[in-house]
Design a protein around this nucleic acid. Structure first.
Lengths: 107, 107
DNA sequence: TTAAATAGTTCATGAAATTTGTACTTTTTA
DNA sequence: TAAAAAGTACAAATTTCATGAACTATTTAA
């Protein structure tokens, strides 16, 4: 009997600028974050698929980076993982940063 | 007789947001860029040393990343490489982005 | 005018991060 | 109960990162 996976998300004060920039320093992740910001709601991983023909495991990997950075909390609901952008927290910690970046991200 | 090294810097329109974020997604590079922005003048590589006991070759590596991203043109003057932040260009391409990020970078 | 010092580059190596394929688990639905 | 759906885990191949040692080019000093 394998224990149920629990996701761990960093505290707000442990989120560094460099790590946020690293999490966004990839066109796919930038697009996912942009989509989440526009939608202003949660998505499943598959829904957030940023481009066709992408391996699930690769997508997984990108989600893990964003989760461990603290950008995206993940919650398991039934079959799906519901992911949301931690918008409030990020705006609290780095006001203006998200909006500024999303101005220049191509969706 | 080995030819003189010529640095190549990307055009403004070839600088992508993701690559800029990638170039800044490292505390050392963030600090170097912050210093250049504050100083608003050129520096030699050694002057820009972001922390003590850092290998020259490692510093090199970071400069190369920033140069190839297009953040920092390099010009050889005598013994030194003079590096400057491409502030005008970056502000042209991504207005507000640099200032926004530097608000949260710890120098 | 050679010798040493300075500033930086290059290359090889090993460590870490990315991408992907395959096999697995868990939950839902037929 | 079996199959499908949504993810996860692990391993291999590739790429990027950090460092040490050896190199080049320019300046300064003997």
């Amino acid at each position: 009997m394998v224990p149920m996976i629990q996701f761990v998300h960093p505290n707000l004060e442990d989120i560094s600028l460099a790590s946020v920039l690293g999490a966004l320093a990839d066109p796919l992740r930038l697009r996912i974050v942009g989509n989440l910001l526009n939608k202003n709601d949660c998505m499943s991983c598959s829904e957030a698929l940023p481009c066709p023909n992408m391996e699930k495991s690769t997508l997984m990997h990108h989600f893990r980076i964003m989760r461990e950075t603290g950008l995206i909390p993940t919650e398991k609901v039934g079959l799906e993982n519901r992911i949301v952008l931690r918008t409030f927290d990020i705006k609290m910690r780095f006001p203006g940063l998200l909006n500024e970046m999303m101005k220049y991200a191509i969706s």
